[in-house]
Design a protein around this nucleic acid. Sequence first.
RNA 1: ACGCCUGUAGCUCAGUUGGAUAGAGCAGCGGACUUCUAAUCCGCAGGUCAGAGGUUCGAAUCCUCUCAGGCGUGCCA
Length: 615
Amino acid sequence: MEVRGMGNRVHEAWKEIRDEVLRSQRETGVTEPVEAVKAPNEELGHLGFPAFSLARQLRRNPNDIAAELAGRIRTGGILRSVTTAKGYVNLFLDEERLANTVLAEIFESQERFAAGGAAVPGTWLVEYSSPNTNKPLHLGHIRNNLLGMGVSRLAEYYGHNVVKVNLVNDRGIHICKTMLAYGKWGAGSTPQSAGVKGDHFVGEFYVRFDREFRKELAAYAEATGTRPEEDGFFNGPSNLGREARDLLLKWEQGDPQTLSLWKRMNEWVLDGFRKTYERMGCRFDLTQFESDTWRFGRQLVEEGVEKGVFSQREDGAVVLDVARIDPALSGEKVLLRSDGTSVYMTQDIGTAARRVDQFFPDRLIYVVGDEQNYHFKLLFGILDLLRPGTGQRCHHLAYGMVRLPEGRMKSREGTVVDADDLMDELHALAREEVLTRAREGHAHAGGVDDRELGERSERIAQAALKFFVFRFTPKKSFEYDPKQSIDFAGQTGPYCLYAYARTRSLVRKSGTEPRFDATLVPLLALPSERVLVRQLFELPLVVEKSAETLDPSKIAEYAFNLAASFARMFNDRDYPIVTCEEARLRSARVMLAAGVGITLKTTLGLLGIDVLEEM
RNA sequence: ACGCCUGUAGCUCAGUUGGAUAGAGCAGCGGACUUCUAAUCCGCAGGUCAGAGGUUCGAAUCCUCUCAGGCGUGCCA
């Protein structure tokens, strides 16, 4: 059923514009219509589209076509007038009508005013976070978590059902290394006894294992005068390596003592993760554990052999000729080892199939770093071979890694930015800022009690962190610059919070929470006010593009631009808002400011940023 | 070696299903506070869009090559 824009004034206005643009092109004989986009400046128009590509389609002069299109577009509704210029058709909107439409909808629907644009609402399954239970979360996980939550919120806002899944990697050799280190050097301590957050507590043993292993490797190299590779040493002469592998074997055989330790340590880590997730605002509808899912997929792979999709090698391994997925690829991908055991890919095939069976998702989105591009290309290809159509519904939201000024983050080398530490650091800095303002006697910073101080500092810190991460388009890697990330001026979360707080300050000073009043709309005629109205009107398009491209950075950009436009209006002393002497003009401007505030709250909310009433 | 990604202002980034004069922030310089919250605003300056060809009415955007950086090409995850 078509639900786009049902009963929503803003969506209907957009539909009206799009329909006119499309209809005019269809009636002119265009088969591949173009959409109207924002014009470069207001003198030319509010929206416009070029006729050049249409000219080619129709083998006619662009200016003639532009003129004909302009003649066919009906004005009188939200469209005020149409002009042509240099082969472009330019549209001017009826700004008073526009302000009416936008503000009426904002005050009625509040934060949902641009919601529900999806033409065909569906179910999206989003897998994100997916940590290993052997060390705390770092900045890379923060990016993953924020992207996962951001895309999920966007999809929901756009009108989809979303199932958020965390696939926790709680088994394997790396877990056993940590368990072994704890057994050897943990001395029975616990996070409680050590007074350390569970994930950090366990993480220390992961680091400890690596340190001891390197010592062992160095000693071996010294004694034998050789320079063995780490992997080779681990799987060969290393005692620690042998012990860790033994532990993995015991785990797989269900040894009660091993399982008991494993459960206890995992619980410590997960307890730590829960706190970090909670602090960041991460939620999941389903948490899967690889200790449960790692056997999935074997049956599908065996069926694949029967179907002739995969083949069994002489050594017993089941493999795929990757050229079946893409003729440009060559080689084999092992799906079952020669000893019959599963690999990572086997499991992913199984979990994907089960997710499809359980949730019937229209899209499966995997939020995973771009170093796994090849893996997902193969996975989706395999799914299409086994169950045609399944792989097509999958999408790898590949994001670039976060680099440090010194280079790549390596947890074993200790060159990571810990998630909890980073948030603590930002919190402390925000607290300093608030206190500085209180000392300097700022009206809104004085008299905050400890609880309020903590709350403000935390929201500012979270806003700074989240905005900093969301500023980058996902596919790009970025360098984490500590100095820039803690900057609270410029294109930042705190800047947006500040703008919102000022809208609220105006509302408080006006005495009442504004309601929509159509008779005030004609008073909003200043250029700065009209810019704001048009920006508010654009939100549905931004949401659409952002949701469809899985790119929350567009929302961050929008929020910042809206905040900046508001700051401009706010700073113009020639046109005061709440101190305006004419009562009706005052009300009109406060109404607009409040509408901007609601929209800032909406868009920041999509990024998981909570606003502040005062700053 | 091959594959994928990236290269835009001094720095960090937008803009890339080909469209109108390539935009922000930071840093720099110069202005605006008896504040509707200066965590703000205004102005100035800053560009061979990595380079070279090509496609066309039109290229930061598409194609080819080159250069630089990152990642990948496991019976690891």
